[in-house]
């Protein structure tokens, strides 16, 4: 894979990781509402997949982290404003960080009910096919969400109508606290693709290059009018389901953080490839820090959304 692209993926992942850490730190200090579901560990996979899409494609996403939006180009200030309920929030205080929306960057939003994005994606696919042929939509969801009935209805519909939809499952092994082995009858979510006559692919979600490659194939297939692909990336959730989750159900949590973090792995790959060194790394860290602190300062200075905003935006 092109080392320049790999470096871009690393750079965005680093920014997402540091931004999220700052948000968690502010939430713990009581400066922000703590409703974030940390995406640490999954952002390399999310960003690699999004990198294989075009700027005018669309995404619907799951609730884990904010890397999707950062990868698509939404400003940190807007995301932070969504968390804080300040002016500049993309969902104007209605959805918070779970429902960041940025249509010009192809981010169509998130369903509060898990798996609600499946059905929306089918409609987006129907509209793209008729109005914007050649564009695709990807729905990112988790292994737990794949047990919703909407998964079945939507994959079948998208497959029979050959819609330009990509279904990207981030399998991190847990549905909140419940391990996949307890909740799901098959070890690989991708095996379910057979029921819809579409390709089902498993990929190591901690391997950015591998994710990029399978995503590229799925995007090409969808663009060409051949219909959806179900991709299952085996990923690592480094932290709990939400910020204050003690993970009493997960005895190996500490080991996972120490050994399975894909970010240092990607960093090493880039160093080995000769496109990253200590100087550049320090510069990337400093850039990330600067962008984050600018956003923090802007949002701290921004006014809270007017209470009357609660009465707006229901009807067009």
């Amino acid at each position: 894979m092109n080392p320049k692209l790999m470096l871009d993926i690393f750079k965005t992942s680093l920014l997402a990781r540091r931004f999220e850490a700052r948000v968690i730190q502010m939430a713990m200090a009581g400066e922000l509402p703590g409703s974030l579901h940390a995406g640490a560990g999954q952002e390399v996979c999310q960003i690699a997949a999004i990198t294989a899409m075009n700027k005018d494609d669309y995404i619907l996403y799951g609730h884990r982290g904010v890397a999707y939006m950062i990868a698509r180009g939404t400003s940190l200030t807007a995301i932070l404003a969504d968390i804080a309920g300040k002016e500049g929030a993309t969902s104007r205080g209605k959805g918070g960080v779970m429902h960041v929306v940025d249509v010009p960057h192809g981010i169509l939003g998130e369903s509060g009910t898990l798996g609600g994005g499946f059905v929306i994606s089918v409609g987006v696919g129907m509209a793209l096919k008729r109005r914007y042929p050649g564009r695709v939509v990807t729905y990112f969801f988790g292994d737990g969400t794949s047990n919703r009935g909407t998964f079945h209805e939507s994959l079948n519909w998208a497959a029979v109508q050959k819609l330009p939809c990509i279904y990207f499952c981030e399998n991190n092994g847990y549905a909140v606290s419940v391990p996949t082995s307890t909740s799901t009858a098959v070890p690989d979510i991708s095996a379910r693709a057979a029921g819809y006559g579409v390709p089902g692919v498993v990929v190591d979600g901690n391997d950015a290059a591998a994710v990029y490659e399978v995503m590229q194939k799925a995007v090409e297939r969808a663009r060409a009018g051949h219909g959806p692909t179900l991709i299952e990336a085996k990923v690592t959730r480094l932290f709990g389901h939400y910020i204050a989750d003690q993970q009493t159900y997960r005895p190996d949590a500490a080991t996972v953080i120490a050994t399975k973090d894909p970010l240092p792995k990607l960093q090493q790959t880039l160093v080995n490839a000769g496109v990253l060194n200590d100087t550049l790394l320090a510069q990337l860290e400093a850039d990330a820090q600067r962008q984050i602190e600018e956003a923090v300062a802007t949002v701290k200075a921004a006014p809270l959304l007017a209470p009357e905003t609660a009465l707006q935006d229901l009807y067009a």
């Binding site: 499946f118 059905v119 089918v122 409609g123 008729r130 079948n156 519909w157």
Partner: peptide
């Protein structure tokens, strides 16, 4: 298909995108 959830949900998605 007999898939009421998609029938309505896809209607929302398609409407968002201009249909």
């Amino acid at each position: 298909p007999i898939s009421e959830n998609v029938m309505v949900g896809a209607g929302v998605g398609a409407a968002m995108m201009g249909l």
